[in-house]
Nucleic acid binder design. Structure first.
Lengths: 252, 252
DNA sequence: ATAACTAAGAGTGTATGCAATCACGATGCC
DNA sequence: GGCATCGTGATTGCATACACTCTTAGTTAT
């Protein structure tokens, strides 16, 4: 045996964590993107460990990773919570996403093999099918479409970053977005594939940018009325009124 | 007291780790960018813990973070080592960096306050001064210039990513770059500040892109002869010849 | 009744211990 | 002499234990 393993210095499928911590990370990421976990939800180390059948050590390690990815907020001596991106951060994240996925498109346009195109169309079909199913699956599949594209570039670092910002965008959607805001995205995915297959870089770039702008708009423009968490700023005008009733029905 | 803390959902200065793990992370990052730690160098948990006066638990946590950032390679049951980016990953990283720092420039051009400009010029002066000092300091300051720019955008996520790719680029330089390859970068920093101060977005973007392309070229074009690590691909053509001598003088 | 104070419970921060795995030199075989 | 095998030390994977901090409910004083 000549020792060839996989790749010496590449962080191919990141999560260098043993495996168990990686499992927890993946589970939580998925729960977040499917909005089963929502911003502000608590993630106590004990509970996580017990739920996944591991010790607090592992759960803690996993939380550390998720914290580094910006999906959970870690504050000293405080229970970890699912991150609540600010409006500013959200806009920031989408801007970055647009640039990164621009790189993806540039790398892919005209270079997709038939098999890859088929794989993409297959995924879009799954997205179509999911529109009648649970919204959670819809959102997850939409996110995974972008991840899939990134993976096809074969560029590990780019893939990793697209992955990360995509999940963060899912979190943003969860924070600010209205329900069913990912309606028409499926068609946009479809025409994007067309452009990529045809090799029209300019058009593909334009489509991707437009698509992401629209996703961002759908996610961000409806912020004020859609959610009632972190309402510090929304409530500010009413502060005096509220001051009378001192009870706060905070969710368990 | 009304509890206003700092910012609820922002990962301001990341490293959510208690403090000690964050210390280790910062120390190792710095050591890497200063090329005191070089690709492939081993980072055993015990040794780290002892060196920093903490237990293996903390060292391990820190390594986890660095692994997530792609600065160290974490493989199960293996000693952590400083990452050795492949040529492909290196190119990849620089591409991403160019896009991200493009965002920085776009956000900054014409919007810099006098104080900020002064701060930047001050930094460039420090870079100038360091050219006569140790190369380690030069490289670190050059990296920190870009980080400083990113911070001035006030965009936390963008700052975080620029930070990460910048450090990764430092690692790339360490892997492929020739000594003294950051010679003229200082001037490029200086003219970039001019363009930013003047508010010429187009010119600033062009300068930044050109600057980074040149940094990449200096770092990557000299790969074949400068270093003899990870020479799998370089040696491929000579494989038959090499087959005779089976000794491999691997460094301790 | 309200507000400040206090004490118990909950949860994190960190160190340590043990089992499992790996690296590497020693040993034996061809 | 070269090559495979084995055993020991080195190192990681993981769980547990304890100290410290924060939260919160109960309590007392005003």
């Amino acid at each position: 045996m000549v020792r060839e393993d996989k790749a010496p210095g590449s962080l191919g499928s990141r999560d260098g964590l043993g495996d168990k911590a990686g499992m927890i990370c993946r589970a939580i990421r998925r729960a977040i993107v499917e909005q089963a976990l929502r911003p502000g939800d608590r993630l106590p180390e004990d509970a996580l460990g017990e739920r996944f059948g591991v010790s607090r050590t592992i759960a803690r390690h996993a939380l550390g990773q998720l914290g580094a990815e910006g999906l959970v907020d870690l504050r000293r001596n405080r229970i970890a919570v699912v991150a609540t991106p600010s409006m500013e951060e959200a806009r920031d994240t989408f801007d970055i996403r647009i640039e990164l996925e621009g790189l993806v498109v540039k790398a892919l346009a005209g270079r997709l093999e038939k098999k890859q195109i088929a794989r993409l169309r297959e995924h879009v079909e799954a997205e179509q099918a999911a529109r009648q199913g649970s919204e959670a699956t819809s959102i997850r599949l939409a996110t995974e479409f972008h991840v899939l594209l990134a993976e096809m570039t074969g560029k590990p670092i780019l893939t990793r970053y697209v992955n990360e910002v995509s999940y963060r965008c899912g979190l943003t959607l969860s924070t600010f977005g209205r329900p069913h805001s990912s309606e028409c995205a499926v068609n946009e995915h479809s025409v994007l594939i067309d452009a990529l297959a045809e090799g029209d870089v300019q058009e593909a770039m334009r489509l991707m940018r437009e698509h992401l702008e629209q996703v961002a708009d759908r996610a961000l423009l409806v912020a004020p009325d859609a959610r009632n968490r972190e309402l510090m700023d929304i409530l500010a005008p009413y502060a005096e009124e509220v001051a009378s009733r001192s009870k706060r029905p905070r969710k368990a």
